[in-house]
Design a protein around this nucleic acid. Structure first.
Length: 967
RNA sequence: GGGUUCGUAGCUCAGAUGGUUAGAGCGCUACAUUGACAUUGUAGAGGCCAGAGGUUCGAUUCCUCUCGGACCCACCA
């Protein structure tokens, strides 16, 4: 390895030529899997799942960089390391994106209907997942792709339903009529922390209001006032307390009661607060406290209801303008002031959020759970007891403050995409909750003539879900009791859930049960138990996309359909004209529906299995008369509900899978501080409750990436850096370094092109250090260790210690700094130059490079591997982490004095404008004359230093006494 | 209203449980360069560590206040 190799390696490192190949090599080798280690010691991180909405952004990029460093470091330590990737369906966000796309084609989601719309969403998601996955890979992330999870995967969903039911049974989840935040655009509720506040210039209106003047920024809500609140100590209003008034507001009559509450600020406005219980959180609380009626005024579209009198039907803003004009005309506006207040807006779409009362599902955070404490207290305890450590620790305070103020969490959303609530309604009110997916029950009839149309086709006559739990028997009894026509035969799929349901029906219907294999569903859409390798080869497209409705190896839809067709044909042939109750599964029904030619059913044939239950309600209501009114709630769960279970739902907690027992609690949760509340706090709360374990031991919160001026990067401002472009231009390694260098936990990082270029330059420097070292001859045999050798080894060992300590302490930026200092300033600038003079250092340089690469590998995995593979077939990432050796003490100090001398000489040259070809003679004085040559001939720049002899011993004082030009 | 955080070189930021000469990168100036690397090297300029008090032998570091930014939470109608 000498000159030829040098010629072989390009002068500059071109990242793009190496990265894809190297990543493929890693992945194919299985190095990303925990199984490469036999160690008992484990380390695990669950990747905060990126939304399937779009593309990689810088937040993802820095998250990946931090986590990959930890993962690779712990792998190098030999631990059993898991980094589990996943994707979040991000309910509202995803739905919004798809809605916008459709809007471009002038299609509203209501035009499509829920089922077809969800198909569109699923298509969009499948496309995006491949893109995002490739982007995650492009950062070099050592993720175990074989364990990829999606929040809508069946096993994850099952955990979601299970926890929901557990909480429902304990009374921790309840349904109630309460004030909620309503996004008028998304047509859904939002949790308290999903509402953002934006300062806006508004107006404060002072309105004559019976005997009062009240101040308000939202006059239109006064149409639904039922009270006036004053401070109990306010002398001005004492005579009115407890009285009731009819107030005329420009012709609109409201009846109010005067109440007192210390919450009212005497100084604010006029000290009299008009109470609108239905559209303000404070007012609602007051109304509950003092028994004021609640008049709903604003509807879900942001329009006034009939209670708004002549303003009914107007949008809030229009109503306000009109009402104010009317008040003005009646002389009821006392004054109008400019006023700055906060407008509530939706964090996903930016549309205004209206507080309004609604019947929704809530998590009670204050009720005592089966673990003896409330969710709040469990969450507080986990951090207080130090079972979870938050870095930086100042976020402890933020965390506790948020927890202390936490109110019940509204978890039901009125959007279509997501986990449907595992709740069944019977009629209008009754609620059944089941964690299990339901058995589908329907009645099939061939040659039907007595129903709706006079056709002789086979058709489905009724369809419903039967939840699988203790409520099943009761429901079946009721269903069967409601049947007015006899059932001749019950046909069931052989799977146990269906068989059980069929048996219960048989008891009440007195009909025989026949099992039909043709109506079985075989692992359709289930990932469990399949060989990854098989999936990869047989169904690459499924493997890549992992579509939720068709997971590999399990049957494809057409396979199910073929079989179901055979079953249907047999049935029709064997039992013509009979009424048959079929108990089976979603996919089978879906395929049967496609087979049955009937216009009334055709609408159903597009329905989508994952969300199959949703259309039953309309279908049943419109088309079926008897006994089928059991329907699943159409609401979906807050996406953060499923996310809050993520550390354990991904590891197989429900079935106590080995991954769960091995890797949970996970070691570190690494994410941006901006989702401390949304996600981190809720994970702590829910995981501690559900599993009795903390979700993770350490929380590392990184700062947000901003532009050079500290502004948030955004598309509209055009100040964003696209990580994909950044990687293409500078390489993933440089991108990683630029995101981490000069960053500290919890503090924002500014990113700009010069910074990335700087790191690219470093990567190239390392490349050339390697080029130089590889070109050195390796001279066999033992070598004397020179002063320079001892020094560089001491520096290297100090660096090993420093980097290790920094990594243990989550000080990533400082680790990088230490490594760069060593690599560039010590190794390249000094030692390599000295090695040119001393010569014969091929072997030692090789060792130094090896250790250096091992230290750098977690940070810049691509270039280090690219260098490494010129010398070794093995993968660098599987090499053991370096251990610091003992070195001779004091060498570094001595060496520092030498570098000072050299620098002094160079400075003298520079100041005196000495041409580099000139030879400088330097005379030194030294009180330890025994070891240092008195005269050192230094020629030109550093590259030509002459090391007169090996130096040992102790330098106490060393100084240049004279510098002259040597003739 | 409560809370957090920042103010260190022209720019972006480190740092020290209080202790010699306060660091890095970029930028700037001068010089060099056919030998691993111009994605380079060498040398240099540039800081009252926001301001004012206090604690201390000693403060850029700890405390208080002021000024100036950023952020989070909250029921100012």
């Amino acid at each position: 390895m000498t000159q030829e190799l040098l010629d072989e390696l390009p002068k500059n490192y071109q990242a793009a030529n190496y990265e894809a190949d190297i990543y493929r090599r890693w992945e194919e080798s299985g190095a990303f899997r925990p199984e490469t280690s036999k160690s008992k010691k484990t380390f695990s991180i669950i990747l905060p799942p990126p939304n399937v909405t779009g593309i990689l952004h810088l937040g993802h990029a820095s998250m990946l960089a931090y986590e990959d460093i930890m993962i690779r470091y712990h792998k190098a330590l030999g631990e059993k390391v898991l980094w589990l990737p996943g994707f979040d369906h991000a309910a509202i966000a995803t739905q919004n994106v798809v809605e916008k796309q459709l809007a471009k084609q002038k299609i509203r989601k209501e035009d499509l209907g829920r089922t077809k719309f969800l198909l569109e969403v699923e298509k969009f998601v499948a496309q995006n997942r491949t893109t995002i996955k490739d982007q995650l890979k492009s950062m070099g992330s050592a993720l175990d792709w074989d364990r990829t999870k999606f929040t809508l995967d069946e096993d994850v969903s099952k955990t979601v339903r299970h926890v929901f039911k557990k909480m429902f049974d304990e009374g921790l989840i309840y349904r109630g009529y309460r004030m909620v935040n309503w996004c008028v655009r998304c047509q859904s509720t939002l949790a308290d922390d999903e509402v953002e506040h934006q300062e806006q210039q508004g107006k404060m209106y002072y309105i004559k209001y019976g005997p009062f003047v009240i101040a308000t920024t939202r006059p239109e809500t006064k149409l639904a006032d039922t009270g006036v609140a004053v401070n109990p100590e306010d002398e001005r209003y004492q005579q009115y307390i407890g009285q009731e008034f009819d107030v005329d507001l420009a012709g609109h009559k409201v009846h109010i009661k005067v109440i007192t509450d210390p919450i009212v600020d005497k100084e604010f406005g006029t000290g009299a607060l008009g109470v609108t219980p239905a559209h303000s959180f404070v007012d609602y609380d007051l109304s509950q406290k003092y028994n004021l009626p609640v008049i709903e005024l604003i509807d879900q579209f942001g329009r006034l209801k009939d209670s708004g009198g002549k303003y009914a039907g107007l949008k809030v803003k229009e109503a306000r303008e009109k009402f104010v004009a009317d008040l003005e005309a009646c002389g009821q506006i006392v004054k109008v002031e400019d006023y700055q207040n906060n407008l509530s807006i939706c964090y996903r779409c930016g549309a205004p959020v209206e507080p309004l009362p609604s019947k929704q599902w809530f998590v009670n955070v204050n009720k005592k759970t089966s673990r003896g404490k409330s969710l709040k207290d469990l969450a507080r305890g986990a951090v207080k007891s130090n079972n979870i450590k938050i870095i930086p620790d100042r976020f402890n305070k933020t965390y506790f403050q948020w927890m202390d103020n936490l109110r019940d969490w509204c978890i039901s959303r009125q959007i279509w995409y997501g986990h449907q609530l595992p709740v069944w309604h019977k009629g209008e009110e009754e609620v059944v909750v089941s964690a299990e997916t339901p058995t589908q029950v329907f009645v099939l009839r061939h040659g039907l003539t007595d129903w709706n149309q006079e056709d002789g086709n086979t058709r489905i006559q009724g369809l419903t879900d039967v939840p699988i739990d203790e409520s099943r028997e009761k429901l079946v009894e009721e269903l069967a009791g409601n049947w007015q026509q006899p059932i001749d035969l019950i046909v069931a799929s052989p799977l146990i859930r269906s068989r059980q349901t069929a048996e219960i029906f048989a008891k009440y219907l007195k009909a025989p049960v026949e099992i039909m294999r043709e109506f079985q569903e075989r692992d359709y859409g289930v990932f469990e138990g399949q060989s990854i390798a098989e999936i990869k080869t047989k169904h690459p497209e499924y493997y890549e996309n992992k579509l939720t409705f068709a997971i590999p190896e399990a049957e494809t839809f057409s396979q199910v359909q073929d079989r179901a067709r055979r079953g249907l044909e047999q049935l029709i042939k064997k039992y013509p004209g009979q009424r048959i109750l079929v108990v089976t599964h979603t996919t089978v029904i879906r395929s049967l529906l496609r087979l049955i030619e009937n216009p009334a059913d055709r609408e159903l044939t597009d329905f989508y299995p994952k969300f199959g239950q949703v259309w039953h309600w309309n279908f049943i209501k419109e088309n079926l008369k008897k006994g089928f009114d059991l329907r699943q709630s159409t609401d979906t769960l807050d996406t953060w509900f499923s996310s809050s279970l993520w550390t354990f739902s991904t590891l197989g907690w429900l079935d106590q899978k080995k991954d769960f027992t091995t890797f949970h609690p996970t070691s570190v949760l690494e994410t941006g501080y901006d989702i401390l509340f949304f996600w981190v706090a809720r994970m702590i709360m829910m995981t501690t409750y559900a599993t009795g374990q903390v979700p993770f031991r350490t929380v590392y919160l990184h700062g947000l990436i901003r532009d050079k001026n500290g502004q948030k990067m955004s598309k509209s401002k055009g100040n964003g850096i696209d990580p994909v472009e950044m990687i293409a231009k500078f390489g993933a390694d440089a991108a990683r370094l630029s995101l981490l260098a000069n960053a500290s936990a919890g503090n924002d990082v500014k990113l700009y092109e010069e910074k990335i270029a700087g790191e690219r330059n470093f990567v190239n420097k390392l490349w050339n250090i390697a080029r130089f070292i590889y070109a050195q001859e390796i001279v066999p045999g033992p070598h004397r260790s020179t002063w320079a050798d001892k020094w560089i080894m001491a520096e290297l060992n100090q660096t090993v210690t420093a980097v290790t300590n920094h990594l243990e302490g989550y000080e990533f930026s400082q680790a990088i700094e230490a490594l760069q200092e060593f690599t560039w300033k010590k190794l390249a600038d000094w030692y390599l130059e000295m090695s040119k003079i001393e010569g014969g250092k091929g072997g030692l340089l090789g060792q130094i490079l090896e250790t250096t690469l091992k230290l750098w590998q977690p940070f810049i995995p691509f270039v280090t591997q690219a260098i490494w593979q010129h010398a070794s077939q093995e993968l660098l990432m599987l090499q053991a982490w370096p251990v610091a050796h003992r070195t001779e003490p004091g060498v570094d100090q001595e060496f520092a004095e030498l570098t000072e001398l050299v620098t002094a000489i160079r400075q003298w040259r520079a100041e005196n404008n000495i041409d580099h070809k000139e030879i400088v003679q330097a005379n030194f004085v030294c009180n330890k004359s025994s070891w240092l040559v008195k005269q050192l001939h230094l020629v030109a720049g550093l590259t030509k230093i002459q090391w007169a002899e090996e130096v040992s011993g102790e330098v106490i004082e060393l100084a240049i006494s004279q510098l002259t030009l040597k003739k």
